[in-house]
Every structure is written in C-alpha cells, then in structure tokens.
C-alpha cells in the first residue's frame, strides 16, 4: 500500500463524518432559520417559501414587539422570576445535594427517592392544589409565587445533578481541610462550592430555563397583564384570536436569544457538568 493511498484513506476516515453531519445539521437548523425568516419579514402570515434563508430584512416586527406598552414590564418580570429561581434553586439544591452526597443519615434514601419521585408527579394533578397553596400564601399575581413554584420544581433535578457531581469530588480534599481545622460549613463554602463550578453553572442554567421557558403555570397564576411573564404574552400572538406570526417569531427570537447565548457560553461545562450527574465517578 503506497503512502498516498494510506493518506487518502486517512483523509476519508477523517472526513466522512461530515457527509452525515453537514446535511443533518442543515435539516435540524431549517426550522430555526424559518423562524428567523419570519421575524425579518414585514408580513404577519405564516406563508413562506421553502427556501429557509431570509430574503427580506426588515426589523419592523422586532420594533413593533418591543414597543408594546407592557413589553418592558413583562420582560422584566421574566428576568426577575428567572434570576430569583436560579438563585434560590441552586442554593437550596446545593446544600441538599451536599448532604445527600457526603453524609449517611437516616432518611437519606427516602430523600433521594422522594426527589426522583417528584419528577413523576403529573402537572395536572399539581396545578389545582398548587393554585390553592399559592392563593393561600397570598402570592397570586406576584412574582414571588412563580419563583417559589419554579424553584421547587427545579430543585429535584438540580439536586440529582449536583449530587452526582459532588460524588466525584474526592473525599481526601475535605479530609485534609478537616485536619486543618475547617468546620463543616467552611468546608462547604470554601472547598466544595469552588470545586464544583461547572456543575453549578449547568444547574443554574437549568433552573434558569425552567423559569424562563415556562408558560402554563404562569398563565394560570397570573391574571393581571402587568404580572405576565413574557412567554404568556408571546403565546397570545398565535393564540385562538390572532395569528401574528411575524410578531411571534420576533418575540421568540428575543426570548430564545439569551438562553442560546448561555448555552454557547456554558457549552463546555454542559458536557462535563451534566453527565457526571448520571455517571458515578
């Protein structure tokens, strides 16, 4: 076998995945491109040509969506809810995951199972009683109510994810810190938290997404337009009474952009931080 042949075989070996990946990526991207195209067209209908590349460039839809009287209020609601959810969800799940990972105590297995089981609660079963609880707490039409609900729904997954990561941190590090005289709380704040930044980032991202992308509960709990989170408003663009596809697409891009940005920024952590939740190191 001549060297040139081996080289070409090598090249083929290296490049054949592109033959699959390239078309597949295109196919996957087409719906997203259509949204972009819709947003950049001045029309409100869905009628599009097959070509996914935008042919017109008009920012009208964006301007119209953003100049709505309640746009800033609703976006701000969304940001506020998501930020608080992230903060509370991550903090709570952090401490719980640490306890579940490092301590062996009665009720630990029960707790782990309980967190897993919450993932199976059907939303419809929860919605009416949840409404009652939130009403009972006097938090309907208030950001705090949504924050509470979102962070508690996000916590179980976050706990599992973080627990898996904490399990991979070698115990020797903590033991040596203990010898140096650190208490359990110093240990947690000064050693565990800094070490698990990637997992924390991913967990934070998921908490954020839970709140940022949710609209059914938000639509149920919020009756006042000023208390809406943005997804609730966005959904109305293509609701029963109107089909403003252009506005919807523009709003969708505005909503998706921050999440996408976060995804790209945290991409590296995403691969590491998520899987260690499943794998036992």
């Amino acid at each position: 076998m001549s060297t040139s042949q081996t080289q070409s075989v090598n090249q083929l070996n290296q490049h054949w995945p592109h033959l699959i990946l390239l078309p597949l990526t295109m196919v996957i991207l087409i719906p997203a491109l259509w949204v972009l195209k819709m947003a950049l067209r001045p029309s409100q209908s869905f009628d599009l040509s097959i070509n996914p590349l935008p042919s017109e460039f008009s920012l009208n839809n964006f301007i119209e969506v953003m100049s709505e009287p309640l746009f800033t209020v609703q976006i701000f609601n969304s940001i506020w809810v998501s930020a608080l959810t992230t903060l509370i969800g991550v903090f709570f799940s952090c401490t719980a995951a640490y306890a579940l990972s490092r301590y062996r105590f009665p009720g630990r297995q029960l707790g782990l199972k309980a967190f897993l089981v919450t993932q199976m609660f059907p939303g419809t079963l929860m919605m009416i009683p949840l409404y009652q609880v939130i009403d009972f707490l006097g938090l309907l039409d208030q950001v705090a109510g949504l924050v509470l609900v979102y962070s508690t729904t996000a916590i179980p997954f976050c706990v599992w994810n973080l627990k898996g990561y904490f399990d991979t941190i070698p115990k020797e590090i903590e033991e040596s810190a203990l010898i140096d005289g650190a208490g359990p709380f110093t240990l947690f704040w000064k050693i565990i938290i800094p070490l698990s930044r990637p997992a924390l980032a991913v967990t934070a991202l998921f908490s954020f997404m839970t709140a940022w992308n949710e609209y059914i509960l938000a639509a149920t709990f919020m009756n006042d337009e000023r208390a809406y989170t943005y997804p609730v408003r966005l959904q109305q663009y293509v609701g029963e009474y109107s089909t403003e596809w252009g506005h919807f697409a523009a709003g969708a891009i505005l909503v998706s952009a921050p999440v996408m940005l976060l995804f790209f920024v945290l991409q590296k952590h995403l691969v590491g931080g998520l899987t260690s939740g499943g794998v036992k190191g």
């Binding site: 709570f92 401490t95 719980a96 640490y98 967190f115 609660f121 079963l125 009416i128 609880v133």
Partner: peptide, 30 residues
C-alpha cells in the same frame, strides 16, 4: 454529622414539602 446533614437538607425539605408534597397530597385527596 447527622445534625449537620439535616441542617443542610432543611431548606429544601421545607420548600419542596410545602410546594410539592402538600399539593400532591391535596391532589390525591381531590
């Protein structure tokens, strides 16, 4: 160490208890 562990678990237990398990049991009652 049990107590430390429970201290760590406390916030989560309470919030998840009130907002997940209470609605769930109410739903069961429903």
């Amino acid at each position: 160490s049990y107590r430390v562990a429970y201290t760590y678990m406390m916030p989560t237990l309470l919030s998840v208890g009130i907002l997940v398990f209470v609605p769930f049991s109410l739903g069961v009652g429903l």
